[in-house]
Computed example of a mutant assay.
Amino acid sequence: MDVNKVLQFVDKLVFENTGQHLNDVQRAVVEGTWNRQTYDDIAHNCHLTKNHVADVGCELWQILSTALDEDIKKSNFRSNLERVYVEKSQNICIGTNHNFTFGSQILNHSQSHLTENNINNQQKLPYRDLTLAPKIKNFCDRKSEIKFLENWIFNQDISLISI
């Protein structure tokens, strides 16, 4: 995660909870903390006092703690934010055409099995950023497992499968 994505993510969280976007000092605190700078360094770069920057940081950590329902501090900001960002990114939606990809095979789910309500719910799902998703380096052919999945999905109408 680069600092620009962090700033966008934090700005979105702050806006959702306060109705205001990050101000310049808050942005400097987020950027400095992400880059593992001290409040002294951040204050020096912004031509502010260390106490003012620390107060802004404390207020920001409280807002983020409320928004994420986590105990956010300067010391755990980076690790908690990376974990929350990855958790939110793992709720992926790959379009609304209901194609499931397993290796080189694509399984097409018939639209007739879906109700109009399910289609509307799928279209409302947000876009998920997959830049932090792990790359698949080795893929083992799983023909028998794919047969089981096909049977469960298409013949037995199982709506939830955990892999």
Rank of each mutant, 00 (worst) to 15 (best):
L125C: 03
T66S: 14
N151A: 00
S162C: 07
K73N: 08
N23W: 03
A67S: 15
I146E: 15
W152Q: 06
D157G: 03
I161M: 11
F139Y: 15
N51D: 11
L149M: 12
S65C: 09
K12N: 10
I146C: 13
T101K: 13
C93M: 00
Y85P: 02
G95P: 02
G19D: 10
K50R: 15
L107Y: 07
Q20G: 06
L107V: 15
E150D: 11
M1K: 05
E82F: 03
I136Q: 15
F154E: 15
P126G: 07
M1V: 10
N35F: 05
K50C: 09
N45I: 03
E87S: 12
C93F: 03
F148K: 14
E116T: 05
H44N: 10
Q90N: 12
F148S: 11
V6A: 10
A43F: 12
L114H: 11
C46G: 05
W152G: 01
C46V: 08
L125R: 15
K137Y: 14
I136F: 04
L60H: 07
F9K: 01
V86E: 03
K50N: 15
M1T: 09
V25L: 13
T38W: 13
N138H: 09
I72Q: 04
L13V: 02
N155K: 13
S144G: 00
Q156I: 00
Q156F: 00
R128L: 01
D141I: 10
L13C: 01
S89R: 06
N91V: 05
T101E: 01
Q90F: 04
K124D: 08
L22P: 10
R142A: 09
S112K: 09
I153N: 06
N35A: 07
D71C: 08
D141H: 10
E82K: 15
T115C: 10
V6S: 03
